[in-house]
Simulated scan of single mutants.
Amino acid sequence: MDKPFIAIEGPIGVGKSSLAHKLSQSYHFYEAKEIVGENPFLSDFYEDISKWSFQTEMFFLCHRYKDYQDLGTKHQGIVADYHIYKNKIFAKNTLSPQEFDKFSRIYTILTEDLKMPDYIVFLDADLFRLKERIKTRNRDFEIHIEDDYLLNLKADYLAYYESLRDSGHHVLRIDTTHLDFVNNPTDYETILAQINTLIGGQALE
């Protein structure tokens, strides 16, 4: 792959897929989309997290592993609406310590030779805005998501961003609480300018 691989990350409802789609059009990149609804355990998971968490997380991990394998063969720019590391963020919030330890070891084995994103854009928003966006997209399996779960995800994504930033990785964090980059061209151009700076104009060459 000889052009940038950009991943968009952040908590549920923050707008990852919408931004990834718009970026793929602006840059003429391949758009890698996560297919959440294909997980057969997801509805049960949100109704009883402790009971269905390991099955849910393992399904997502295997599915995303295969997707990232395929992305490694692309010879064009890529923008994905997720980073495979999100598996560990979500698993940390749902699995018991023993299950998380087992999951982490499987994750390490599966991902050790995968091509990882060159740049990661972290989106965030306040709790009210996240809940508003989740409600707007009207996915049945998301109606049971609790506030504490979203707040924990927000905190873990922030911690992950800060750890990458402090390690010198190419990351960018954008608070979208007061931005509507889907319907407001000015807001989108503001975000696009920040991402152009992040990737050093590589996508425009």
Rank of each mutant, 00 (worst) to 15 (best):
F128D: 13
F128Y: 12
L130R: 04
L130Y: 06
L130H: 04
K131T: 05
K131H: 05
E132L: 12
E132R: 11
R133L: 14
I134D: 02
I134P: 02
K135Q: 12
K135L: 11
N138V: 05
N138S: 14
R139A: 07
D140R: 03
D140I: 00
D140V: 03
F141Q: 10
F141P: 08
F141I: 09
E142H: 10
I143S: 13
H144N: 15
H144S: 13
I145F: 01
I145R: 07
E146C: 07
E146L: 10
D147A: 07
D147C: 06
D148V: 03
D148L: 10
L150E: 04
L151G: 01
L153P: 02
L153W: 00
K154G: 01
K154E: 04
D156P: 00
D156M: 07
Y157E: 02
Y157I: 02
L158W: 00
L158F: 06
Y160M: 07
Y161N: 04
E162R: 15
E162I: 03
E162G: 02
S163G: 07
L164S: 09
L164T: 04
L164M: 15
R165M: 11
D166R: 13
D166L: 13
S167Q: 12
S167L: 09
G168T: 11
H169D: 05
H169K: 13
H170F: 10
H170C: 10
H170K: 15
H170D: 12
H170P: 03
H170Y: 12
L172V: 09
L172M: 09
L172I: 08
R173L: 14
I174H: 08
I174P: 01
T177F: 10
H178T: 10
L179T: 02
D180F: 00
D180V: 06
D180A: 08
V182D: 13
N183Y: 06
N184S: 05
N184I: 07
P185A: 04
T186E: 14
T186S: 13
T186Y: 12
T186N: 12
Y188W: 09
Y188L: 14
